[in-house]
Design a protein around this nucleic acid. Structure first.
Lengths: 66, 66
DNA sequence: TCCATATGTATGATATAGTTTGCATTAAGT
DNA sequence: ACTTAATGCAAACTATATCATACATATGGA
């Protein structure tokens, strides 16, 4: 599926651990970990919560031009 | 959950039926209908496919500032 | 009037997102 | 050396997105 390095970078830019982000968006650490590893395909609502927590937009983290 | 009128509008702007969009992104018509009605919470991958089919971006259809 | 298209909605089945628990590794602090 | 925080990963479970099929209404064209 392809790792989400943009998300990892945005999180790192805020000096936030996976656990902290997980708590902020109300999922488990495993879910954040799996998304960053590209191991699954989160729901749009979760993506939006993650973006809000990281102060970025959907396009910043999840969009790619073709 | 809130209807997705932006999606409906983008689709209408391309004169595309729910069925045509569904075929283009390889889901059933019911899925497109349910998303437009706000009846559920699609995966990010499906959102991306929908955006590509409608020639818009994630932010255009699914992002909202707070 | 009849037929086709577009849409809303419902239900039972299946796939998968997300949880819980747990174990292992690495890096930093004491 | 020991502890703690951060991460990767796996198995079994639960919740829910999505499918397949179906029925209903509205509209427009022949």
């Amino acid at each position: 599926m392809g790792k989400n390095l943009k998300m990892k970078a945005a999180r790192a830019g805020l000096d936030m651990s996976q656990k902290e982000l997980a708590d902020a968006v109300d999922v488990t650490r495993q879910t954040i970990s799996a998304i960053e590893r590209g191991d699954y395909n989160p729901s749009i609502k979760l993506c939006i919560r993650i973006c809000q927590a990281l102060h970025v937009t959907l396009n910043d983290l999840f969009w790619e031009e073709n």
